[in-house]
Amino acid sequence: MTRADPNQVTPSILYLDGIEVSFDGYRALRGLSLTLDKGELRAIIGPNGAGKTTMMDIVTGKTRPDRGTALFAGSVDLTKLDESEIAELGIGRKFQKPTVFESQSVADNVLLALSGPRGPWSALFGLRSRVDVDRIDAVLAKVRLLEMRDSLAGALSHGQKQWLEIAMLLAQNPKLLLVDEPVAGMTDAETETTAALLREINAEHTIVVVEHDMDFVRMLGCRVTCLHEGAVLAEGALDAVSADPRVIEVYLGR
């Protein structure tokens, strides 16, 4: 599906068109349309309730849209697949609240995320290889958690848990990473490190970051999409978007 696919209808890695979702009558997404190029780093901003997390739920199969098109890699219809199928396609997600497996070691958390067979038989009878250990250590080194590899994930600080989640995303080796509020609750130094980390990861992966912290978005130095009331309000370079009077009105404003 990566090369010339006859069914490919768009060159974008992610293509959302006219997505609508309602929860008990509340219209969370009202015709959201968004495209993402391969290799892009994109920040999504917008006030609470703008539909940022719902958009991620649609892409990862947690929520089914009432209407609209969601295509991955130009041809795969995401609305027909469930979470694990989408994860196998190569879409990884980091949640807003860091969710790591607290009662297991940092290295085991990454081990569970490593790309590879996911069935019970291979987990029971497959061979653990030296390569896996090297891959785990390589990923942990990248997020600066190598010296914590044998600690319990539950013992990590909030910021370290966020990094561990990013490490788990990397271990999955996804084509597309969805990162929800990676710097919430981080110190300024940690925020800077995270921005550098995401830019580094972007060299090989397409990334979507949802974030409120405008300083952090500036550090990312990428295209920005502002959502409002379940649709795209503005899109472009950060300076252009933040100068947009409508964005100032609903989000930056006051």
Binding site: E83, T99, V100, F101, S103, A113, R118
Partner: peptide
């Protein structure tokens, strides 16, 4: 244990 502690997270990892 991953399923026990965070079932939906495990699902998002592709299990």
């Amino acid at each position: 244990v991953a399923i026990r502690d965070a079932e939906s997270r495990t699902r998002f990892l592709g299990y």
